[in-house]
Amino acid sequence: MQVFLQNWIYLIASVSLIGVGLYIVLTKENIFRIIVGLNIIESGTNLFMIAIAWHPKAVMPIYTATDHLAVNGKVIAADPLPQSLVLTAIVIGLGTTALALAIGVKIFEKYGTLDVRKIKEAEK
């Protein structure tokens, strides 16, 4: 049971988050809801990237913290490179979210609605 969970639980979490986010983006009409969906997709992607850098016996990649963390005389740290990539991805996600919200607020000021369908009709 434990082995099964270790292998699969993080993958299930990340993939279902990506799926839920994609579903929101594809079906919802409210602009703010679409941005919520984009955020959830981003969380799922980050989780996926961290999960494939991990090993059940791994310790965190910090020298001063791992001094006494030998497992059976052997030690493995989680792969730090994907972690650094995810740091970057999180910050980029914040930037995109802020810009999208600014555009959304602007759209509400000018069209008086956040519904994508109504905006399309107003353009015609």
Binding site: N7, I52, A53, A58, V59, P61, V75, I76, A78, D79
Partner: peptide, 8 residues
């Protein structure tokens, strides 16, 4: 699966 890194 399970990438490892040697801290040493």
């Amino acid at each position: 699966k399970g990438w490892g890194v040697n801290v040493n």
